[in-house]
């Protein structure tokens, strides 16, 4: 086999391999979406983030607009500090509310953004003023039981 044949076959092989990599980047993964380099950062503080994890999606009206970049704890206020990375395609008003929601009954947790009416938009590094913590199942149940307990004496009277 002469050299040009080697070159041709290897060239074809490399092309197929690179095509497979592009396929993995665009079709399997979502390079066009939000990898941690692009977009702008927002910070949100929650009393309790429940089971939220790094890389969880950030959604607005059900559309993925970003990802959770990092999670930390403010050791003075004992609040969870969640950094979000939002795609630069989307803008949110200053009074946007961030809440931690669950997809489905037992599904993964994500951050939901609900834009308000403020004409000023959030910029990179801003902190979200209003947040709503995760629903903790145990707390919900105990709240329910307490309220039931509070009702009972009134009924018996």
């Amino acid at each position: 086999m002469n050299r040009s044949k080697f070159d041709f076959a290897v060239g074809l092989f490399v092309a197929i391999g690179l095509l497979a990599m592009v396929f993995m980047a665009l079709k399997v993964g979502n390079l066009a979406g939000f990898d941690s380099g692009s977009g702008y950062a927002l910070e949100a503080r929650f009393d309790n983030i429940g089971g939220l994890k790094v890389r969880a999606p950030v959604k607005s009206a059900g559309v993925v607009v970003g990802r959770v970049d990092s999670i930390g704890l403010d050791s003075e206020t004992y609040e969870a500090v969640v950094r979000l990375r939002i795609s630069s395609n989307y803008r949110f008003s200053k009074d946007t509310i961030a809440s931690i929601l669950t997809s489905g009954l037992l599904g993964e947790q994500y951050v939901g953004l609900e834009s308000g009416g403020d004409p000023v938009y959030l910029a990179g590094g801003d902190r979200l003023g209003k947040t709503q913590s995760a629903m903790i199942l145990e707390k919900l149940i105990s709240q329910f039981l307490f309220s039931k307990a509070a009702e009972t004496p009134a009924k018996s009277q």
Partner: peptide, 19 residues
């Protein structure tokens, strides 16, 4: 099938680390 895949496969963390 595709959208779930794209939403959960991260190019940097999954694809690049695999390579």
């Amino acid at each position: 099938f595709w959208s779930q895949m794209q939403a959960n496969v991260d190019v940097r963390i999954d694809v690049l680390n695999g390579l």
